[in-house]
Structures are given as structure tokens and as C-alpha cells.
């Protein structure tokens, strides 16, 4: 799980262009949206693309993201359970 969390952090920094941030700057339990990382609805869509590209998980409804993208940790748990690649 730790490994997946680190990989996710790296991927998120890259695709969301979080310039100057390092994986250790992101708290795996902190909320991704609003407070915390301060991501928005477009970032959520980018994360949906990431889920499919890297882990073969297809989300049809952007509202599903709200639960899954609560924090990096929640996301990692969901991926571990549902990944197809």
C-alpha cells in the first residue's frame, strides 16, 4: 500500500502539474479537494483519466469521484481493490 501511495502521489504531481511539490509534501490522509491540496472539478476529471490509464478502472459518472478522491489513501485503497492492471 505504501508503495502505491507513493506512486499515486508522483503521478498526481505530474499530471496536475503541481510544480515544486514533492511526494512527501502531500499528506496521504488530507483532503484532495477544497482544503488540503485545493484541487477542483477539472482535476477530478484528470484523476478519472489517470485511474483508467494507469489502473484500468473506468468511472462513468464524475460523481463517483467525490467518494473515491477523498484523499490519496482512500484513492489507493479503491485502486488496490478494483485495479485491472
Amino acid at each position: 500500500m505504501e508503495e502505491l501511495i507513493l506512486k499515486l502521489k508522483e503521478e498526481i504531481i505530474e499530471i496536475l502539474n503541481l510544480e515544486g511539490m514533492k511526494p512527501e509534501d502531500i499528506d496521504a490522509d488530507a483532503p484532495l479537494f477544497g482544503e488540503g491540496l485545493g484541487l477542483d472539478s477539472i482535476d477530478a476529471l484528470e484523476l478519472i483519466v489517470l485511474m483508467e490509464k494507469s489502473y484500468g478502472i473506468k468511472l462513468k459518472d464524475p460523481n463517483q469521484g467525490k467518494e473515491i478522491f477523498k484523499s490519496i489513501k482512500v484513492m489507493a485503497e479503491y485502486i488496490a481493490e478494483n485495479r485491472t492492471k
Binding site: 499530471i15 477539472i42 476529471l45 484528470e46 483519466v49 483508467e52 490509464k53
Partner: peptide, 9 residues
């Protein structure tokens, strides 16, 4: 498939 919304936006 798998196109990034940011670039379109």
C-alpha cells in the same frame, strides 16, 4: 479515449 479535459478546456 483517455483524452485530458484540461487541454480541451
Amino acid at each position: 479515449e483517455l483524452l485530458n479535459p484540461t487541454h480541451f478546456m
